[in-house]
Amino acid sequence: MSGLDEALNVLRAALGEGLRTVTEFRGETTAEIAPANIVAACRALRDAPGLRFTRLAGLTAVDYWPEEPRFAVIYLLHSLEKGLSLRLLHRLAGDAPSVASVVEVFPSANWHEREVYDMFGILFTGHPDLRRLLMPADWQGHPLRKDYPLGYEEVQFTFNFDEIDRKKPYAKE
């Protein structure tokens, strides 16, 4: 696993204090960094000559409500030539956090960040086109947050059939 050790050294050199913890779980390495350093970290990993993490496999977020810091944004980086995968993670606190966008480093992050904004409400500064992607443009709320309700509708069985039938908005002609 010397390739990943090299990657972590590159990160340490580029970020210094910004690299907070490195965890390993089931053979996968995750590096937690400070949110302010995300663009520098991505650029360092992409441009490092021995590593070439040119591919952003995925970008997503997790909501740990009611734990603080509430959000974690996860970047899945992949080096095609060396066959290495590394995960970057940073935690954001608050209800409408913002972080720098990595679109200039990885162009494929465009839609991923739009989806994270749509689902979690995390703002990406420097993103050319931050609009809702999956929900309608006038939707209120961010669905994948833990305090957003699932929208569960009561299931209609025989014992409550008439009650639900009365309340359901059937379409007339």
């Binding site: 779980f25 996968e28 496999a57 995925g58 997790v62 899945l76």
Partner: peptide, 20 residues
Amino acid sequence: RGAIYSAVESPRGELGVYLE
């Protein structure tokens, strides 16, 4: 507690699951 990422080759490309 922990997260993994596991990917397969679907007929369309890389289908990955990030499970935490």
